[in-house]
Design a protein around this nucleic acid. Structure first.
Lengths: 150, 150
DNA sequence: TATTGTTATACTCTATAACTATA
DNA sequence: TATAGTTATAGAGTATAACAATA
């Protein structure tokens, strides 16, 4: 296939779907290999890291930020709080609201997870040249920006 | 960010994870918009299309092909057979085995789904130039090849 | 003994709808 | 009346383990 081949959009999407499962599995396997507990799944990690980067954030805002329902947020928080990675705080400005904050044990776990992510990525991206990796990243970054807008 | 920036592998993966949820949702929404029934989900469609492209295939081989467990295959087949999209045939060469084949009503539905996939992709990939789309496709194709080997 | 697919069971991610407490 | 979060419930995707039929 020549380098200038411009694929049908549907083809690109189909390729993306076919791969995402295998990529996710490789990633979760590496998390386990690095000694991270089984309850630290991909989505929970994404949730935890988002809270970590936000400092303190309302549950409601988490729902908006991740594009999930309030109910789903409650479930993530229940699971992460049970494992002492997250704490709920009352919002002093609105007694209906709840603020989230990571616990003291979260940052080391996040650091470990990032190592896992790095290794998983290195493994997954190994067949790509640095140039292609750069292209892929730029494409994903643009797609991400669009995702935020919707 | 200059074009020659080569990202950390972990960064690429994190971007991929952050986006895949939003992409999947956009896709499923379009499936519904095009009038496809709600039980035709992404994974089921992937399963159905794989059988379609194989002609006749053993359940066991489907598990290997998709990287899922035998139990999970049974579940997909149960669901798709219930909705008359797939049929089970006894394998004449091995009485333990079961062959899968799509039903007559599957091909039109697959065609419709491909339209949805095309539109979803066009929508998702809109922010990319044709050149970047081509790069993205090439990268995904290489990653897919690796996925098959594992 | 090993393999194919199923039954039994469980966990995670996600959603909608009804409800409680507050605003 | 509207909003924040929870309880109740459900469906989809995935997995492991035990089992029956067949090889």
């Amino acid at each position: 296939m020549p380098r200038s081949y411009v694929p049908e959009p549907g083809e690109v999407l189909e390729t993306l779907f076919r791969n995402s499962h295998s990529v996710h599995r490789q990633f979760e396997a590496l998390l386990t290999e690095l000694g991270l507990p089984a309850y630290v799944t991909g989505p929970r990690l994404r949730f935890l890291i988002t809270v970590f980067e936000s400092g303190r954030i309302r549950m409601n805002d988490m729902a908006a930020k991740l594009g999930i329902q309030a109910r789903t947020v409650t479930q993530f928080v229940d699971a992460l709080e049970e494992h002492k990675l997250l704490i709920r705080l009352p919002d002093p400005e609105d007694r209906r609201a709840t603020l989230l904050q990571v616990s003291e044990s979260a940052p080391p776990l996040i650091a470990q997870a990032r190592v896992a992510m790095s290794r998983a990525a290195a493994q997954v991206l190994q067949p790509l040249s640095p140039e292609m990796r750069s292209h892929l990243f730029e494409a994903l970054r643009l797609l991400a920006r669009k995702g935020v807008q919707e």
